[in-house]
């Protein structure tokens, strides 16, 4: 490997793994990762809510970690493994977390939901039996204007062991 240098107006080939599939697309250096996922790779389930790293709607898993995709660039994702909300369900069945969101009415308009699901997925892997305060702390990196968050907290706790401690 040697240093990568891509001119400002070059469309550079980016190869990565998204939701378990090898994907390639092209991006100029300034293309945000969220735009790349949505418009270049055709995965619009990742939503863009603020483009300044505050609202969390665009959160995806990059190499297993929940991160904003609006504050990084497509070229940075070369060779990474990304999971988006499109990659969560088990075949045609909602996974446990998704089902918990439905069962606890943890979404209304659903626009912020994709990002929250991705954060919660990583978080529960790190903290399998969180307290309510830990869940709220993790959720504070997201803005939801519909739910008041309570139902989201309940949904996440419901899939965490015995409902959290």
């Amino acid at each position: 490997m040697s240093m990568v240098r891509v001119k400002a107006d070059d469309r550079h080939r980016v190869s990565l793994t998204v939701n378990g599939r090898r994907r390639t697309g092209h991006a100029e250096p300034r293309m945000q990762l969220c735009d790349f996922l949505r418009h270049e790779l055709g995965l619009p389930g990742t939503h863009v809510g603020c483009e300044h790293g505050v609202c969390g709607a665009c959160t995806v898993l990059i190499d297993g970690r929940a991160q904003r995709s609006c504050t990084q660039f497509a070229l940075q994702a070369e060779g990474t493994e990304i999971t988006t909300v499109e990659g969560l369900a088990e075949g045609e069945t909602l996974n446990r977390l998704q089902a918990a969101f439905r069962d606890h009415h943890a979404l209304q308009c659903g626009f912020c939901t994709a990002g929250i699901l991705m954060s919660a997925t990583h978080f529960l892997r790190e903290v399998p039996a969180p307290s309510e305060a830990e869940v709220r702390d993790m959720l504070s990196g997201h803005i939801c204007r519909c739910t008041g968050y309570d139902s989201i907290v309940r949904a996440i706790l419901s899939v965490a062991g015995e409902g959290g401690t």
């Binding site: 995965l43 389930g45 909300v85 499109e86 998704q98 659903g110 939901t113």
Partner: peptide, 9 residues
């Protein structure tokens, strides 16, 4: 509404 919203569809 939820299934489509939860799966990004």
């Amino acid at each position: 509404e939820d299934a489509a919203l939860l799966t990004g569809r």
